[in-house]
């Protein structure tokens, strides 16, 4: 049996809101240590992995490992109407493993609304263990998420693709659209800061801009974001969710191949 409780204004729900423009259904695995959500966008271009340790929830109990397909779009839609201080409880039982129950309790505890959400069948897709993969990556950029969001906002003025390339002591974002082009150079400052750009080998990736803008939404929930690039490999965008937590989200974005 699984039971977890959270307040409506929790980071978990804010993250779900932020990823909904990419995915509407997700594979959710729960164990005694926490919850893992994985989802791929409809075109199979972006992959999202979200990890929330059990202690991040107001209450968390899972006595048996569970894996289920959840229409997170429908779930978030139902929770949106709840009071901002309301408490959300999500339950799944072993006896009836065809749906989950989501209950919303008002802050005064005088009103409870429950709804049953049918589970969906999803073909699971597993990616390799990422930390091992990233050791072989060519370049990593740790940067404040406000910088990443600002750059994505600049890029959103150009409709098309973005080329992210390593340059001497930094990286370059270049977008070419119908109305013109945009060039952003992001360099490693001389003084120690919260920016860390490490380049083992030159790399350049061409990526669909619309996905970058979706990633920027989630990075708004975190102070720092880390981009990892490697030749011919998906872009990896990682960020911790919130401060002083071990919750984290990882995006993978498949590049475009020129020619």
């Amino acid at each position: 049996m699984l039971e977890l409780k959270l307040v409506k204004e929790s980071l978990f729900l804010n993250v779900l809101e932020a990823i909904l423009d990419l995915v509407a259904v997700a594979s959710v695995s729960c164990s005694s240590t926490g919850l893992k959500l994985q989802a791929m966008d409809a075109k199979g271009v972006a992959f999202i992995s979200l990890l929330i340790p059990a202690k991040e929830f107001q209450f968390y109990h899972c006595d048996k490992d569970l894996s289920m397909g959840i229409a997170i779009g429908d779930m978030v839609e139902a929770i949106r109407s709840a009071d901002k201080d309301g408490t959300i409880t999500i339950k799944a039982s072993d006896e009836n493993f065809r749906n989950i129950t989501v209950s919303i309790e008002s802050p005064e505890c005088n009103e409870t609304t429950s709804f049953s959400l049918l589970l969906v069948t999803l073909k699971r897709f597993c990616i390799p263990e990422l930390q091992g993969l990233l050791k072989k990556y060519d370049a990593c950029v740790q940067m404040p998420s406000v910088d990443f969001m600002r750059i994505c906002k600049y890029l959103s003025n150009v409709d098309g693709d973005v080329d992210i390339s390593t340059i001497d002591k930094g990286i370059r974002f270049f977008a070419l659209g119908k109305c013109g082009c945009l060039n952003v150079k992001y360099m490693q400052p001389e003084k120690a800061t919260d920016i860390d750009i490490s380049v083992q080998a030159p790399v350049s990736l061409t990526l669909d801009l619309k996905y970058m803008n979706s990633f920027a939404k989630v990075s708004a929930l975190s102070n720092q974001v880390k981009l990892c690039l490697s030749k011919g490999q998906p872009l990896v965008v990682q960020c911790k969710i919130g401060q002083k937590t071990k919750s984290r989200i990882i995006y993978l974005l498949a590049p475009k191949i020129k020619g």
Binding site: G44, A46, F125, I127, P128, G160, D161, T206, A254, K256
Partner: peptide, 14 residues
């Protein structure tokens, strides 16, 4: 622009 690859193409063997 280029040819969009999918995530599955990179990790198909795993």
């Amino acid at each position: 622009s280029g040819v969009q690859r999918s995530i599955k193409e990179f990790y198909r063997s795993t």
